[in-house]
Design a binder for these strands. Sequence first.
DNA 1: CTCGACTTGCACAGCGTTGTGCAACGAGCA
DNA 2: TGCTCGTTGCACAACGCTGTGCAAGTCGAG
Lengths: 205, 205
Amino acid sequence: MTLMTTGNSSRADANRRRILDVALAELLRDPDASMDQIARAAGVVRRTVYGHFPSRDALIGTLVDGAVEAVAAAHAGGRAAAEGPAESVARSTLAVWEVADRYRILVALAQRSVTVQGIRDRLAPVRASCAEVLAQGLADGVFTSPLPAPALAYVHEQMLLTLMEAVNDGLLESREAGSSAAVTLLTAAGVPASDATALVAKLNR
Amino acid sequence: MTLMTTGNSSRADANRRRILDVALAELLRDPDASMDQIARAAGVVRRTVYGHFPSRDALIGTLVDGAVEAVAAAHAGGRAAAEGPAESVARSTLAVWEVADRYRILVALAQRSVTVQGIRDRLAPVRASCAEVLAQGLADGVFTSPLPAPALAYVHEQMLLTLMEAVNDGLLESREAGSSAAVTLLTAAGVPASDATALVAKLNR
DNA sequence: CTCGACTTGCACAGCGTTGTGCAACGAGCA
DNA sequence: TGCTCGTTGCACAACGCTGTGCAAGTCGAG
């Protein structure tokens, strides 16, 4: 066991990648999935996983880092391209949905796993950004809600996660889900349903 | 150890009650909380907990039963007193909010804990009832959403829980939260914000 | 006060998981 | 062909949790 400190073989890299991929899926099914379960699912022996990641926490940490980074980037990108709060919410929802489709699993994990609870902190900037947009929209009168902006941001975040889980549970078609999510979030912010639908339809073109 | 098969002392009853209460809170903080953690938090020794509940699952089962029963009753009551889908959603939201204040913890637990995942099944009737109301509202045109009724029910359920957590986190004033929750749920279902506000205000009188 | 029910503290076996050590095996590259 | 690095399979200690047994406490009702 060389602990993979130096060399790089294509095999090792492929394995590492596959382990990460599989771990994502496996940890959704069971947030307490053991290293053995993950290893087996990746078609590898437990000992090999420890060759790539020194500990269970290290594995999950790597996973979390990748996901948070991707989500934050998508969100920022969507927001930057938008004009006005409504479009901002719509765009970043759609953008986040794209990446999150892959990381859906992990985000769900983030909810329950105590181990990676630090993820909340790492997502805090994104949440703050959302609250900012919402506050703007409420001030402009584009959005209407009895909730203060931070609470509404909280609700939005959870709705997004909920819709992802709804897809997982087969209640929603993955193809259309992104747009539905965007419309639903806007609607929840008090944007009239027809306006929300029209806006998202426009963005989808 | 008499295993409490026969007698009834006030001490035993108080302990049993306290254990259940504390377990609720403890299991929210950490869904994998050990019997020892729960026992200590209840000011009792682990062995004593086993005196009241034969196993960890039994404890959680008892917990779940009580909460589900209360929530289901509140929901049914709210729904029964209502005329039309919108009022139904508003009333049961307000009603559930009342009881949930005590069980907030557990309902949140139900989300993430793998151990008590069977709770989902037990809440299924309630969820089905919600979906029914929502389907009715969508058919009537009172509600507007790109989501199918079951998915919308799912979202509503989660929003309720999210708002409860928002109260826990101090983002929301507990006093007003119930009404805000009802308005927010109606809004998310596509009811114009002004109508939702008016309806809930009326019900609050 | 006294009895019986409840509680405590300890000890124990069983189980699953984590992280590590080591020798042997196998595939790709020089 | 030989060398190297990754992989495998096994063994191991350590840890924490569950559920149980038992003897000695302690509290409250009668």
